Structure formats: structure tokens, C-alpha cells
Simulated scan of single mutants.
Amino acid sequence: MTLATTTIPGYLAGTWSIDPTHSDISFSVRHMMVSKVKGRFGSFSGTIVTGATPAQSSVTAEIDLNSIDTNNAQRDNHIRSADFFEVEKYPTMTFRSTSVDSDGEDYLVTGDLNLKGITKSVTLKLELNGIGPDAYGGTRAGFSASTEISRKEFGVDIDMPMDGGGVVIGDKISIALEIEAVLDAA
């Protein structure tokens, strides 16, 4: 089922650029089997193309893996190393949508996520937060999205066992996006 565009206040077909100053891409991962470490990426870009209907829309994004920030420089440098992202060889992570489907009032955006040269299909649960004018004469749209991936499926397969069982770093990575996009001038 596809929602008609008339049910989405302010919906406009067009090309939108992600505003990195007003957006956030963050993640969390289980640490030492007892807590979660959170981090974010400070440098990314992307384009959203809204079609005549939401199902005809698409998104592409690129994340600079060097921009990782977990609030600990030593850990960040380790994550950039060959043990994790291997940023000298694979400096970016990319996403290219392949479909947009409705999920009640929200959407499921499925696409190809590429990390460390490995591409896997990933589905983001997406909420359209709103569309409206900005203070500069333009139009903005806001989105929240989330998904979970297995780091091992993307070649980030370091295992650091703990004495007594368990591992230092969990396999499942929760990803959260808060995206604000600006409609490109025609």
C-alpha cells in the first residue's frame, strides 16, 4: 500500500540535499557484555529524490569513516585501523536505496549498504517528521530512521574474547539517523 501524496502535508517531489549541520548519523554497540558504546560520524553527504509518490523516491548517501567519534581518540584510531574499518583502503561507507514501501504511517527504505568493499541489503525503518519552509526562503524535510546490522557480515569480524566468556565487542550494531534535507532550487 502506498500513501497518496495528499495525505502528507507539504509533500513535494524534487531533489533534496542532506544538511550535515542539522543531521546526525550515530550508532551503538554492546561493550564488555554489560553496556553500550555510542558513536557518530561527523562527515557525510547525501541526496534524497522524492518522486510523485513516496514509493517512487530514492536516497543515496556517503559517510566518511575517518570522521568516527566515540568520544575516545584511542578507540577511534583503533576503529579506523585494519582491525575494524581499514579506512586507508575503504575510506567511505555508502548507501543506495532500491525500494521505498509504506509501513503504516512510516516507511521501509531498503537499499545496498557498502562497507569495507562488501555490499549487503539493509532495511531502514523511516519516519517522515515533516516538510515545511525554512528561515531562508527554502523548504526543508526531516526524517528519522533506524536499522540494525551485523558487523561481521561486513568484514568487521574482529573477536576479542573476555576471560570467563563473552566478547569485548558485540556483533549487532544499532544505527540511528536524524536527517534534515533542503530542497534544491530548480
Rank of each mutant, 00 (worst) to 15 (best):
M1S: 01
T2K: 03
A4Q: 12
A4M: 08
T6C: 02
Y11D: 14
L12K: 15
G14R: 08
W16K: 05
S17K: 04
I18Y: 06
D19I: 04
T21C: 01
H22W: 04
H22N: 15
D24M: 10
I25D: 05
S26E: 08
S28I: 01
R30C: 13
M33G: 03
V34Q: 04
V37S: 14
K38I: 08
G39V: 05
G39E: 07
R40E: 15
G46W: 04
I48Y: 02
I48W: 03
V49S: 10
G51H: 04
P54E: 05
P54C: 03
A55P: 00
A55W: 00
Q56S: 13
S57N: 00
A61T: 02
E62M: 07
E62D: 04
I63G: 15
N66P: 00
I68G: 06
N71I: 05
Q74E: 11
H78D: 11
R80E: 11
D83L: 14
E86G: 10
E88Y: 07
Y90W: 14
Y90R: 04
P91R: 08
F95S: 01
R96A: 15
S97N: 13
S99Y: 01
D101V: 12
S102G: 12
G104Q: 12
E105H: 02
G111V: 01
G111H: 04
L113A: 10
L115S: 12
L115A: 05
L124K: 09
K125T: 10
E127P: 01
G130V: 12
I131T: 10
I131R: 09
P133C: 02
D134C: 11
G138K: 10
G142A: 09
S144G: 14
K152R: 15
G155D: 04
V156E: 02
I158R: 08
I158E: 12
M160D: 05
M162L: 15
G165D: 14
G166I: 00
V167Q: 13
V168Y: 03
I169P: 06
K172A: 13
K172C: 00
A176S: 10
L177S: 13
I179Y: 02
V182Q: 10
V182A: 08
A185N: 07
